[in-house]
Design a protein around this nucleic acid. Structure first.
Lengths: 334, 334
DNA sequence: ATGAAAGCGCTAACAT
DNA sequence: ATGTTAGCGCTTTCAT
């Protein structure tokens, strides 16, 4: 078998070899098409001999949709990568495919989104990146649903969103920190324009002040390691030093732990409490043992999938995912 | 503007509005097509008003190639993720796109590869996954170049490959370990069928035995964290314990460090030397300070790109990338 | 420089 | 159940 002649044999080639019509070939490769078993077998045999593969581009052209989902993701974040992993697995389960762009964090993702539209993707998923309102409107007009996860403007026309319960989660962190005996606090923020960072700060601060405690010292860590190092140095060198520091992401919290330990020789937990947000794998590593408010990835994916499969883009517009406190050693004082 | 009527206006719609032929619209969107500036402007104006976007699926159908590169990647490895990041950036630079599949490590990736072929991807890149010889042959016959990076069988017809200099690098590690005063050794392997792990072990062992030293104790860590934990416990509890342990990947080395520190209370470097391979970011973190032989990602990408752009798939069949020893605290005895 | 016409490889009526 | 026909939205000769 496989004595191919052209690099990409067509349904026509197969039809000729099998002695059937080209349409029959099409049917043979379509589940639930009415075709006699005998013909189907003839077709498969011929197809096999030629190394035929249905051209999905042609199929997509007719169907008006490609079976591909566009993904734009900010590269360097571990949490986003975890979501991407899980999402990818989920997609192959339902026979869809992933057209992926990574985007340098800060700038808006209009260019990649534009490219995705030209490929007629069935939907666009934004992971940890922002899109402009203009672009969002265009997607809406083209009837391409766009779903933003994490760090995205809410209430944008045509953009569904999935987020962690930033406010509530941060309040849980605050409560936990206080229960552990810490009394003065710091907050390490992401970029100022990040909705997620704003909400986490708000939830954290609100709980503190509601108890008559002072608002946290703050520094901006930009959601990445380099920025977090800077911010950590700033936060940890204030006098008096905050007794516990809440970082807007685990990734930044990890960086802070390293600065505290290796540059300032502080005992994590006892001399300075550290908490993060997201629940990335590394947080659970014994080395870090980081207290965090974790957003279960499976839950994110669980909410994502129906939005992609259903034809109604109007179902759950803004979903908030409830996470869970993971109390660990980084907030243990003794 | 943008008073769209259909969700996906076609070149025909634009032509009608602009009062030109449909072919003119096509030319307007083609660089280096002969078209009068005036017409082009009329077309752009109309296109803009309608929210027209050329359908790349249709274009691909004609051209016989899609402008997409297929990527199959094993999910959980940090090193592979780093390569993916860099590769993605490089691809957008040249206007190509990435159709991504992740694959549960162990099993062969024939299914994803098959799917990619149906989308008429221009090339397939395998990152840390293996493909069967049969599948490779089929790609070759379909004239879809396939490029394997890391962990892939060499000398497979139609498969170009890029690998680290596993043997030489591991020898460098051995030499370094000996120079630091370690005399008995352990090796943590990946899956037995992994070419990369085999080569790293061979290079390491060969150097030791050439010096009359005993071959290393070994355990299999499977290239992932869970496996590495097991292997680490096994390796570290042998009597006598190896003075230094070389792990086939940084990821596994990190796990070993955690076991040594937190389960066995060993001082890394002084009581047990640890070295890895790859040069992932985490290795440089102060907490780990892991000695490793690093493969520069930029170099990988640098070799990958020409294979994708050139039309000759016959240029550099098997590329070996030279890395560099990063000597750090995890192999300092004092 | 521009339009008319012929496909790219496939699916989806419509016949039979 | 099967063949025939007409497109999907675009690029590309070929005329003009």
């Amino acid at each position: 078998m496989t004595k191919r002649t052209s690099p990409h044999p067509t349904a026509h080639d197969v039809a000729r070899l099998a002695g059937v019509s080209q349409a029959a070939v099409s049917r043979a490769f379509t589940t639930k098409a009415s075709i006699a078993l005998a013909t189907r077998n003839k077709v498969f045999e011929a197809a096999n001999a030629l190394g035929y593969r249905p051209n999905l581009l042609a199929r997509s052209l007719i169907k008006g949709k490609s079976g591909m989902v566009g993904v734009v993701i900010s590269p360097l974040s571990p949490f986003c990568m975890a979501v991407l992993d899980a999402f990818s697995a989920r997609l192959s389960d339902v026979g869809k495919h992933m057209l992926v762009f990574t985007n340098d964090g800060a700038k808006a993702v209009d260019k990649p989104v534009e490219a995705l539209m030209k490929f007629r993707v069935d939907a666009i998923v934004l992971i940890g990146v922002r899109v402009t309102a203009k672009q969002a409107r265009q997607c809406h007009e083209a009837q391409v649903p766009i779903i933003a996860f994490s760090r995205s403007p809410r209430n944008m026309k045509g953009v569904a969103s999935i987020t962690s319960d930033n406010v509530a989660g941060s309040e849980v962190i605050a409560r936990h920190l206080i229960a552990q005996g810490y009394r003065t606090f710091g907050y390490m923020a992401g970029p100022e324009e990040s909705k997620a960072s704003q909400e986490r700060e708000a939830g954290f601060t609100a709980h503190l002040t509601s108890l008559g405690l002072p608002a946290p010292e703050r520094a901006v860590g930009q959601f990445h390691r380099a920025g977090a190092f800077e911010a950590a140095r700033s936060l940890l060198s204030r006098t008096p030093r905050p007794e516990a520091i809440f970082c807007a992401t685990d990734e930044m919290a990890l960086a802070l732990i390293e600065v505290a330990r290796h540059e300032l020789n502080l005992a994590i937990g006892r001399e300075v409490g550290v908490a993060g947000f997201d629940g990335i794998e590394e947080a659970a590593w014994p080395t870090f043992d980081l207290t965090t408010y974790s957003t279960p990835v499976e839950s994110v994916i669980g909410h994502l999938s129906p939005m992609l499969l259903d034809e109604q883009p109007e179902l759950p517009l803004h979903t908030v995912i409830t996470g869970k406190l993971e109390a660990r050693g980084s907030t243990r004082r003794d």
